[in-house]
Design a binder for these strands. Structure first.
Lengths: 293, 293
DNA sequence: TTGAACCACCCAAAAAGTGGATGGATACGG
DNA sequence: CCGTATCCATCCACTTTTTGGGTGGTTCAA
């Protein structure tokens, strides 16, 4: 079995990975797949397929009747670790238009849909200026539509991290007007202007650094099989799972998990999970509630 | 200005795109960046950088003092359309471990975190068998932990689509026991067995095909600036936005949008949005509530 | 002034890829 | 049963890409 992996060029490695990806997920590869995906000649595609066979002898055989290379029963991936998350992320990327079906490695996309995340498009120039300010540890002047001011206002912020709350992207920043760390919703930034050194960079963003462990369990009023199903969903052990959350993101995490309302607001089957006592919670939730500007 | 784009080989095109990606987002590229990312020799990297200059003359200049190629002021992308969604999706992919930092094109990753989505890992073999059943329009026997049965049970389902509810992945399937279309949570599938032709494939999955327009607006008790901020977040026009949702996913969509509880369950600032009357809603919600098994 | 860290360029040789041509195996429709 | 279409394999000469070994230039900082 030729299972050595010689030093291959990047392009060759990519093609071999592609062959293996298709073999695992679809069960077969064609010469024409390589031709379409990498724009090579039929000639070269033949060569690459045979190169793969030379390197991973028992993984693939040519099915003359099916006119295609098929995964053999003793297939063992050599260039790729099969990963569901990766496969599913690719489906989502295609559905969101981030990746064109031509660039995706999945050949035969299953029918797919997702609950809509009405994420407004972010101007790449604005996002870039924020990212650069984070990298350079600078303050940047942004035209921001806050929840309190009537119209968008120019204000100085010193961003230090990006955060995603499940819907929107935030720039975790020190607001130089109040001197406090807040979340600025990136889609509410209408424009950016100049940058300069931050006013007081010694201060720590404590709510960002502090990590709270959220103990979650199935709703106690569920039946035993219902509890078991929920435990499976969340990967719970002994009826509980511990979810680490930055305190700065606690408000959003609770909202996303559906734990931001009274337990009575939903039926147990809809609520599904509950918090298993969290000492920091009441303190954290109240001090975070006004964190968004 | 040499702005023709000759037929380039796939590998070359990739490298030029990488150069442009780095130029746009980071503002600079090095020969060493190409060397690390594509494993080429310093020699070749020089060649590729000069090839880029030859093709996009005014986009990049060498800064001798900074010892790096920098984006010129009149930069115009030629091989890539800058896209925030793509950039942010890449950050998330790296954070989730889907893409290793070495494979990501972003050189200097900003500090980042997200609200946790406790998505349990899915066995790629199980996912593959579901995807194949969808593609082949087959029924498949799965060992499923339902919400009603005490222990996992073998049952036949005929899946036809994948769905993502914001947390979990579902296989939208015809349950051959009840003859009805339901959502099967993929992480609750413990194992799969044989496949066969589906029992009655003539039946349509009406709840899947039917698309409901969800009219959403800012919470009426918010102040005018607060409303304006929310309108920005969701891209609303004239205080409303219409979100299309398959009826099969309506239950999850409402949950994700925080619209599955009484409006009084949260303060207006936390609720943020409300439904602007939906005639199909009451009917839809009740008939979907039990859709998950 | 010296070394380090960049980059440019020249050369011969290997590897990757193209285009054209020939041929084999299989399936499908008349 | 025959012709045709569709896969793939292989040989050839040729081009492009890439490597490796050089040599040298510029800038910065110690």
């Amino acid at each position: 079995m030729g299972e050595e992996r010689p030093n291959l060029r990047w392009g060759v490695e990519q093609k071999l990975q592609f062959i293996e990806f298709r073999l695992f997920w679809e069960g077969h590869v064609n010469r024409s797949d390589l031709i379409e995906k990498f724009g090579v000649s039929p000639n070269q595609a033949s060569g690459d397929l045979n190169r793969y066979i030379a390197l991973a002898e028992n993984n693939m055989i040519y099915d003359k009747s099916g006119k295609t290379y098929v995964r053999s029963s003793c297939f063992k991936p050599l260039f790729l670790k099969p990963d569901s998350t990766q496969y599913l992320a690719q489906i989502r990327s295609v559905a969101e238009g981030v990746v064109s079906p031509d660039d995706a490695w999945i050949g035969n996309l299953p029918v797919f849909d997702a609950t809509p995340a009405p994420a407004r498009g972010i101007d790449p120039i604005i996002l870039r200026s924020i990212v650069i300010a984070i990298r350079r540890v600078e303050a940047i002047e942004v035209l921001y539509q806050s929840m309190s001011a009537q119209d968008p206002e120019w204000r100085w912020i010193a961003p230090h991290a990006l955060a995603f709350d499940g819907f929107r992207w935030h720039a975790r920043s020190c607001c130089e007007k109040s001197g406090q760390y807040r979340d600025f919703v990136i889609s509410r930034i209408m424009d950016t202007r100049q940058t300069r050194a931050p006013q007081k960079q010694a201060m720590f963003d404590i709510a960002w650094e502090e990590v709270i462990e959220l103990a979650v369990g199935p709703h106690p009023e569920l039946s035993a099989p219902q509890k078991r199903a929920i435990e499976l969903d969340y990967g719970m052990q002994n009826g509980r799972v511990s979810i680490p959350v930055r305190r700065a993101l606690l408000y959003y995490a609770l909202k996303r998990l559906g734990l931001d309302t009274e337990p009575s607001a939903r039926k147990p089957q809809d609520q599904q999970i509950i918090l298993l006592s969290d000492p920091n919670l009441s303190q954290g939730a109240s001090s975070i509630g006004g964190g968004i500007r």
